[in-house]
């Protein structure tokens, strides 16, 4: 019965159990023990597109580095495709594709040369797995003689994705692939991820952009090194426990301050063109708030009941 002892082990592409990581930061005056990750547990099924959503400094990169065997966790176990990140790191390194957060290709090599180097590093050739990258590579192929350092942000990321994909990895780790990329390229990038998912490649992607969360199968919200919630984007939104109003007026920054002074307002955050407000006392109506705001001398006050977004959920959870 030995082989059935751990029946779940091979069901998941990525399995992460109570991982913690601390950094010792040597400042000139004292040793600071900085907590990077605290008790992180999650599983990713084969072929799933799993998003890790959180602001800068939440611990996304540290988590990715642990998952890709680059650093060791202080506590907890991680296995990728059934291989342990500590013992079997060599076989993991054969099977995964990793795209680090910052652009990490050779800037002085051309697009084609970069792709070739990474193909050869993984003991394959561009021709062998061209079908995998074809959709993406076609877009940058006109520039294949251009040095990678001279590409635009979006093209750089597409090239980096090609390089991470060229050896047909089983699991793909993308650390903030769309940071610093224009909105059109971001959308294209996510379309590509969907197509890759159709090829049954497990994808883990991290992003600080909450609007990208809904494009994942499941997401984990991360803040200060801890997961706040793991679920499908839809469930997370549906579980938002409050009624959400969007409020706007002619003087937006004064409005934010005034809203926060009103005792019945539970929370209020600025969301671009409007402020999102939740209430302590659910009996209040939209008109009642409008009256209060007009007392604060606000003109053309508009209040709408809206559905929560992932970002609202994130703000609510922190």
């Amino acid at each position: 019965m030995q082989s059935f002892q751990n029946p779940t082990e091979n069901e998941f592409a990525v399995s992460c159990q109570s991982v913690s990581k601390h950094y010792i930061k040597n400042s000139p005056f004292e040793k600071l023990n900085v907590k990077a990750l605290e008790n992180i547990s999650f599983d990713v099924s084969r072929g799933e597109l799993f998003g890790i959503i959180g602001p800068d400094g939440a611990g996304k990169t540290t988590l990715f580095r642990i998952l890709t065997t680059l650093i060791l966790a202080d506590e907890g176990t991680v296995s990728i495709e059934g291989n342990d990140v500590v013992k079997d790191f060599k076989s993991i390194r054969n099977e995964v594709g990793y795209m680090p957060g910052r652009f990490s290709l050779y800037q002085d090599l051309t697009v084609e040369e970069n792709l070739n180097v990474f193909a050869k590093v993984f003991k394959t050739s561009i021709e062998e797995n061209y079908h995998l990258i074809e959709d993406i590579y076609k877009q940058i192929e006109p520039f294949k003689k251009r040095r990678a350092g001279k590409l635009s942000g979006g093209m750089k990321q597409k090239l980096a994705l090609c390089c991470a994909l060229i050896h047909k990895p089983k699991v793909l780790f993308l650390d903030e692939p769309t940071t610093g990329v224009d909105p059109v390229s971001r959308k294209e990038f996510w379309d590509m991820l969907k197509r890759l998912k159709a090829q049954n490649i497990t994808i883990l992607v991290s992003t600080p952009y909450m609007d990208e969360a809904s494009l994942c199968d499941r997401i984990a919200l991360i803040q200060n090194g801890s997961f706040l919630k793991i679920d499908t984007p839809k469930n997370i939104v549906n579980q938002f426990p409050h009624e959400l109003w969007s409020v706007s007026s002619d003087a937006m920054s004064k409005l934010l301050n005034d809203l926060r002074k009103i005792p019945n307002i539970r929370s209020c955050f600025s969301f671009g063109e409007s402020h999102h407000v939740t209430l302590k006392n659910k009996d209040w109506s939209v008109d009642e708030l409008k009256v209060v705001l007009e007392k604060y001398e606000h003109t053309s006050v508009e209040i709408k009941v809206i559905e929560a977004s992932i970002e609202d959920c994130f703000m609510d959870l922190t």
Binding site: L70, R93, S104
Partner: peptide, 13 residues
């Protein structure tokens, strides 16, 4: 410094 070492490490090399 450029981060390419990270990619090389996560490879069979």
């Amino acid at each position: 410094e450029l981060g390419t070492m990270e990619v090389l490490l996560v490879s069979p090399m």
